[in-house]
């Protein structure tokens, strides 16, 4: 098994190196170069700088690109974390419900309607419902949630409302991935050949599910963490834009629009690291949950 883990760790390191090279290529695009040799020398110089954590300076503000990116990341991480919680709260019950029986499994196509809704359409629909149906203050969507703001704010509900809609938007996108992962794993676990053997040994359905099926499903969900992270990051970019939150994702959009590739490269690199590390860590946890399923 340790050989497999060594391979997985090597894959992670290889992917991280690939992410560094990709970010460097993108950052080098901001410097005009004439000819292949000029580009290569610019790329190598940039690669050395990136390896020491220096992505250069922002073309629009002149500040350090990495510092600009890291300053914007707390708001995005906050949104991503809230999104993970919402995704699990919505996705797990939905996934379990839709895979509970053959009849309910047949109702799964209804999920396609939700899955076919782009994130920005869902976000606009949520704002419309909040303002027109729930009578929430329209302007409250513009402000972001921060601990400092919460400590200052006399009206906690307004501050939380401002955070609830983007978190719901991101969480709904993650929930679609979570329920799909659970449905796939649950169907595999509930049709596994070992169930008949365990029944013949006298174990009840509840015991079999609790001791064998649930760990398998949880492990499968953890193994899909990378894909779920991608769905959440993508949704966060749209949610920050729609809800006017100043996070890393919206900074990335602005940087790409203005050709500020140093900042865009730094943000893209951090997103890739988040996805790759989350995937590796969750894979490790999945092995502890269900060692027989492998990694």
């Amino acid at each position: 098994m340790w050989r497999l883990w060594l391979l997985r760790a090597a894959q992670l390191i290889g992917s991280l190196v690939g992410a560094v090279v990709l970010a460097t290529l993108l950052a080098t695009a901001s410097h005009p170069s004439h000819g292949v040799s000029s580009f290569l020398s610019a790329f190598l110089a940039k690669l050395l700088a990136v390896l020491s954590g220096d992505f250069g300076q922002s073309a629009t503000t002149g500040a350090s690109a990495m510092t600009a990116a890291l300053t914007a990341f707390p708001a995005t991480l906050q949104l991503l974390l809230a999104g993970v919680i919402v995704a699990l709260l919505l996705g797990i019950p939905l996934g379990v419900f839709l895979s509970a029986s053959r009849t309910l499994r047949a109702a799964a196509p209804l999920m396609q309607i939700i899955a076919a809704t782009p994130v920005f359409v869902a976000a606009l629909a949520l704002i419309w419902i909040a303002v027109r149906v729930l009578d929430w203050n329209e302007t409250s969507q513009a402000s972001a949630l921060s601990w400092a703001g919460l400590m200052r704010s006399a009206d906690w509900s307004t501050a939380l409302r401002a955070f609830a809609l983007p978190a719901l938007t991101v969480g709904a996108a993650g929930a679609a991935s979570v329920q799909l992962s659970i449905r796939r794993a649950a169907v595999r676990a509930w049709s596994a050949p070992y169930r008949n053997g365990l029944r013949m040994m006298g174990l009840g359905t509840f015991d079999i599910d609790l001791r064998y099926a649930v760990p398998d499903v949880v492990a499968a969900l953890l193994r899909d963490a990378g894909e779920i992270a991608l769905a959440l990051i993508s949704a966060a970019a749209v949610a920050e834009w729609v809800f006017h939150r100043d996070g890393a994702a919206v900074l990335f959009l602005k940087s790409a629009a203005f050709g500020d590739w140093n900042v865009a490269a730094a943000i893209l690199f951090v997103f890739a690291v988040i996805k790759l590390v989350a995937q590796f860590v969750c894979l490790a946890v999945s092995w502890f949950v269900a060692p027989d399923e492998g990694v």
Partner: peptide
């Protein structure tokens, strides 16, 4: 490595 990035962000790049 490219798959470690969301489709939307790659397209924007």
């Amino acid at each position: 490595v490219l798959g470690a990035l969301p489709v939307l962000l790659l397209a924007i790049v």
